[in-house]
Design a protein around this nucleic acid. Structure first.
Lengths: 244, 244
DNA sequence: GCAAGGCATGAATCTACAT
DNA sequence: GATGTAGATTCATGCCTTG
């Protein structure tokens, strides 16, 4: 297997497993009796926080190595995992630029009424190390698209991935449990990359990053452990190229 | 010194030092030549991440000990520190309910145009441990005050602390660099405490928590290391009681 | 008295270049 | 690499001055 060169990637977008720790065997039902299908795949199962931390440190270390000094890394998460991930990123010397809040507008309500509705995910945006000042940030473009005002870390409001964009199998079952919306990844690439840049997604899943990168004329590399998702992503990308 | 009893506190609100790591000697100036006054107090200075982590684990361990199984703890922070704090909270066994986003509406812009405007702070809301189910959460009240809709973790929008509410000395200099808005603390107490409950603020600062607790008929205990802030908070509370 | 405009300021890991 | 200095740049709000 060919090894990535050091300092070779312009932008990394990572949506790692969230380590949700849902209790086994419990079912959450909506008021109409229908069942909420949880993320219960093997790739989100870890024995302990320690195992999750070790997994996290390993892939982050690799990402930091291949990231250019002018590049940036984006890591998504929710409260289950993002604090552990962020702490490990800091320990590795990655230097935070912002934590951006993706506010959803149609998230699932809290059925048990014992907490606030989970209506956001957090994106940590960082450079390779503290000394990296010359990173790509398309400030003027974002400002223009934001009514002439500087973009804020709370200005990212997009719907979750649903409707025709959501990939489903022949039975209508969603093909990937955590497919991310195209607009979210588009915003990441428009913020911090240029035409011709190399984009890496170490958890490619259904291939959203690849599709967006292709559409915006960025080069891309995706990594995915589950063979069925690699096939899914390949089909999706081929479809996109043909129908465009 | 009398020691707090185990399991004796109904609600903890903690706004710890953020460990900002601003470069020494550098000045950030506005276009008109005026200077941005940074948070550069000794209490926010730590030698390293390790020292900050150790400090954090110590105070959190104490908070967890005194927190009732029916109580909750709220911890505020920004991207500089909140990820480390959250990871340590999870390691201690504190169980997260939500991460709530306080969206500001009038935060300082990013003068250098190299990042997004920092326009939010994060509040982690947690219970003593995973098994605590019977915590205080005034769900119906919040729903009523939110136009009949379930409150979301992104529904907290308050201005920063300025205007007449902001404490200043005779020269107009702010008395505390990080005074929090009354409405923010009010929202915390209205969410997760009842009349007569005991509220603990381990970083009392200018005493905002005490004033709000008094106004909402909660009992309170505040801890503060800096003598000048203790005096400031005492004066503020006396003023509030007299003028009410 | 009222409206318009000037000015101060806020938890900031905020630049580029020369020595 | 650390340090010093010149230089370019921002948004919402509220108080105060001016007309």
């Amino acid at each position: 297997m060919k090894k990535f060169s050091d300092n070779s990637v312009d932008l990394i977008f990572a949506d790692p497993p969230y380590h949700l720790q849902l209790p086994e065997g419990r079912r959450l039902k909506r008021g109409d009796g229908s069942e909420v299908i949880p993320v219960a795949d093997g790739w989100d199962k870890f024995e302990s926080y320690e195992e999750y931390d070790s997994f996290t440190e390993n892939w982050l270390r690799g990402c930091q190595r291949v990231l250019k000094p002018t590049g940036t890394i984006w890591v998504m998460g929710m409260y289950h995992n993002i604090f552990r991930v962020g702490k490990i990123m800091q320990d590795l010397g990655l230097w935070f630029l912002n934590d951006v809040i993706w506010v959803k507008i149609d998230a699932m309500p809290n059925f048990k009424c014992r907490r606030f509705t989970n209506n956001h995910e957090t994106l940590i945006w960082a450079v390779k190390n503290k000394n990296c000042k010359n990173y790509t940030f398309n400030y003027e473009f974002l400002k223009m698209m934001n009514d002439g005002r500087q973009m804020k870390d709370t200005d990212w409001t997009f719907p979750i991935c649903r409707g025709p964009e959501r990939l489903r199998d022949e039975n209508g079952i969603k093909s990937h449990p955590t497919q991310k919306p195209l607009k979210l990844i588009q915003q990441v690439l428009l913020t911090a990359s240029r035409k011709g840049d190399l984009v890496l997604d170490p958890f490619m899943g259904s291939g959203t990053t690849a599709v967006v990168a292709h559409a915006l004329h960025r080069n891309w590399v995706g990594i995915e452990k589950e063979k069925r998702y690699v096939e899914l992503a390949n089909m999706r990308i081929e479809n996109y190229i043909q129908t465009k």
